[in-house]
Nucleic acid binder design. Structure first.
Lengths: 171, 171
DNA sequence: CAATATAGTTCTAAAATTGAACTGTCAAAT
DNA sequence: ATTTGACAGTTCAATTTTAGAACTATATTG
């Protein structure tokens, strides 16, 4: 499967993965949330090759996750800042950090603590139901096909002998 | 940077990315949450090459995200099911889906809807502060070094001439 | 006995990533 | 006036990963 195909899958998770689902992109986004804005900043913070960094930044701009804005003329220089679409990735970032905090810390404890400005306390992120406010767990959630679901495959038309070139990516 | 180095970074996000931060692994995990358990099931649902699938499943088992359990003798067959550590990835999955639902849907709408058993309603996942229950956004959160933080680099010891083989990955 | 199902392994070709050097503009230092 | 350094990339060969296809192995079904 090519990676641009991912974004056309009828699956929101696959589409998201098509945009941010690779290792360097996720690390670049971490830096964005830690207020890194410039090429050299990303490069020296991450040790990514300049080639890949340029490539990934270009893609994130194309996708509307980052905006490239000039911060000086002559020589023209730009910085990369999160758009609203990019800022909306925050829950994903926090979920990743929290899982690491829960399952991947060593004896020394957490590398970072998070303080919530509004209440002034150190906190963990909790994912809750928008309707009832209760914390979510996989077992309490049922999925239903939505309006954008792939139409159910007609079982009768599935010829066992046919060798499809690539199989579906969505359940 | 090698990928096993990621897991030793003093950054919970980098460590998490080291475990689940590649495209196929994320898609495999999506299938796990949709109740796929067997090799052929993953393969035909995803169209992943058998080689990579075997490799990724092995890694997820090694990391304690999946458990490999026999479901028949002769020929010995196993299925892959989520451990608690794996189930704890649920908020990450939901955050990915929700971002896609918000920013990547086409005219037809969402591919999947989610029903919360407890309250019976279709919902969106919302990330809130564990202490005050308010929804979180990047601007309201401040980070502090935790007990497992990398000790601050002594500025004086940074020799500009020294060419470090690989730069730090953590801010 | 041949075909099918399941869960892999092995191999080669193609694609992505690394590492290192190179380009170009401008400001500051010698 | 010339060299040095900061910044933001680009280019290219070598290595690593992934894709695609075929093959192995065990047991059941027709």
């Amino acid at each position: 499967m090519k990676w641009d195909e991912l974004e056309e899958e009828p699956c929101s998770m696959a589409r998201t993965i098509g945009v941010i689902g690779d290792r360097w992109t996720l690390l670049i986004l971490r830096e964005c949330f830690l207020r890194t804005r410039r090429f050299e900043g990303f490069q020296s913070a991450l040790g990514i090759t300049r080639h890949l960094l340029a490539e990934r930044l270009k893609k994130l701009v194309r996708q509307g996750v980052l905006r490239r804005i000039p911060y000086q003329e002559s020589p023209k220089r730009h910085e990369y800042i999160l758009t609203q679409k990019g800022l909306d990735l925050y829950p994903i970032m926090m979920a990743l950090v929290h899982w690491g905090d829960t399952h991947m810390v060593d004896e020394r404890g957490r590398p970072l603590l998070h303080e919530h400005r509004k209440c002034g306390k150190m906190f963990d992120p909790v994912m809750v139901c928008s309707e009832c406010g209760e914390p979510l767990s996989a077992k309490e959630v049922h999925v239903h096909p939505g309006p954008g679901a792939r139409p159910a495959l007609a079982k009768a038309s599935l010829d066992k002998k046919a060798k499809p070139k690539s199989r579906r990516v969505t359940a």
